[in-house]
Each structure stands twice: as C-alpha cells, then as structure tokens.
Design a protein around this nucleic acid. Structure first.
Lengths: 114, 114
DNA sequence: AGGGGTGGTTACCATCGGGATACCGGTTAG
DNA sequence: CTAACCGGTATCCCGATGGTAACCACCCCT
C-alpha cells in the first residue's frame, strides 16, 4: 500500500499489497461481506482477496467475524487501527487527485521524447 | 511507494517502487549526486537505483541534471511536483511512527496463535 | 435430488521486482 | 602506467506477486 518510511532508520518497509488500499476504502463506511467486496473490486480473484484480507487481519487493520446461524455469513470491518489509516489515505488520495494530471503529462512527455 | 487510490474509479494504481519513498526523502533537503544517494540507501544496487531514479524522472517527480565540465557530475533534485509529495509522505510517516508498535503487536499476536 | 449462493482452498503458471556480479568509458591522482 | 572514482549498463537468477481454473463443504430453495 505504501511505505511508512521512517527518516530515522533508512530502510524500506512496506506493508499492504496491490489491493489493500482499495479494500480499506471499501470498508470505510461499515462492514462488508466477502462477496460484497468482490463487486467494487472488479477483477480481483477470490484467492487474492482472501490473501489480502488475511494479511490485513494479521496486521490488525481489519477484523473478520463469522456470524453464527445457519447461513454462512462473514463480515470484514475496520479495526480502530485500520480506521486510523483513513486519514493518511485521504491525504494521499487528495494529493493524487490534485496532481494526477501532472503525473500523466510528465509520463506522456517522457514517452514522447523516446 | 503508495497507492493514490481514487475512490471514484476503483482500480488499483501504484507508482513508485521499494525505494522511491526513501529516495524522495533523501532529496528533501537539496539535490544529491548519484553516489551520495547510495550512501544512506545502504544495500541498494546501482541498477535498482538508476531504475528508480529513471521512473521518478519519468513521472516528473525528480529532475536529473548532468553538470558540464571535465568531471562527471550528475545531480538529482526534487521537482515542484516531487516536493508537493513531501506533505502527504510526512503524514504517512507520522502515522507509521505512531502506530508502528500496534502493527508489530498485531503481527506478533497473529503469529502467536498459529 | 438438483441447482445455486457463500466463503473459501488448492494447484499451476507467468510475470516482475529486485539483488548480485561483472563490465565500461571517461577522468583524475599517484 | 596503473589504480581509483564516477555514473552508469548488461546479465543472470531467484523469490514473491498475482492471475486462472478447478474443486470443496455447507446451506437454502424447489
């Protein structure tokens, strides 16, 4: 997702994968079920989604609750820790929205003089 | 580096690699030369560093200037666009510093009940 | 009994990022 | 002449990431 780079010790540390950011934002407005997550994340395979969810769970960002009852029903929700990430993520998104065009322009310009 | 995830269109988009964040932070306080970058980024190979720098250059975040003269001297600096990233990155770093322990605890707890 | 939805797991496979190593042209110092 | 430094490039290789497809148990509905 991103590198929380600590200036103190210069080592690259990453957590999160291709989909983690998206998943967290999908959980922003409340718990979602497994299949509810697959809808907005068009293209994600079950395997990768479970993988990402397991990692997020392991890191304490997302909680998994299997609701009892005859129907199989599993809900994923943000933990407080996960929710605390929404702020920084919003900042990053704001930056991206603001500078997206410049990025594309730069890439296009760079491709142009190839 | 991180996913600037736009909530509007849910597609995973990433730019930056393992070292991009670190490189940008190394350039925070002024231009640096190729070999000056390799020092704080212990462990990075020349190939990977050039690769990352080329990508950052392509995206308009970093500028490369080969100074004329008999001595080979190349300097990398942040562009205004690159500098605009420092804010969001600081936010991310602050989050990381604040919640780093919780993350580690969660991982440890998860590993514990394996 | 059969079909469908939910929430996965497993095996297989292609791709890619990144690390190690060697090399290279130009320049300067000893 | 030789060695060393700068800023790379060329190759090889490995492991992780991620995608596809098949399969599975459990439950519901008809």
């Amino acid at each position: 997702m991103f590198d929380p780079v600590c200036p103190s010790d210069l080592a690259p540390i990453r957590f999160g994968d291709k989909w983690s950011g998206l998943i967290i934002r999908c959980l922003e407005h409340g718990p979602r079920r497994f299949s509810e997550l697959r809808v907005p994340l068009r293209g994600i395979s079950a395997k990768v989604l479970t993988g990402s969810l397991r990692t997020l769970e392991r890191d304490g960002l997302v909680s998994r609750t299997a609701h009892p009852g005859p129907l199989q029903r599993v809900e994923y929700a943000l933990t407080p820790l996960g929710r605390s990430l929404l702020g920084p993520m919003a900042t990053a998104c704001a930056w991206a929205e603001e500078h997206w065009d410049e990025l594309l322009d730069a890439r296009e310009a760079a491709a142009g003089l190839t």
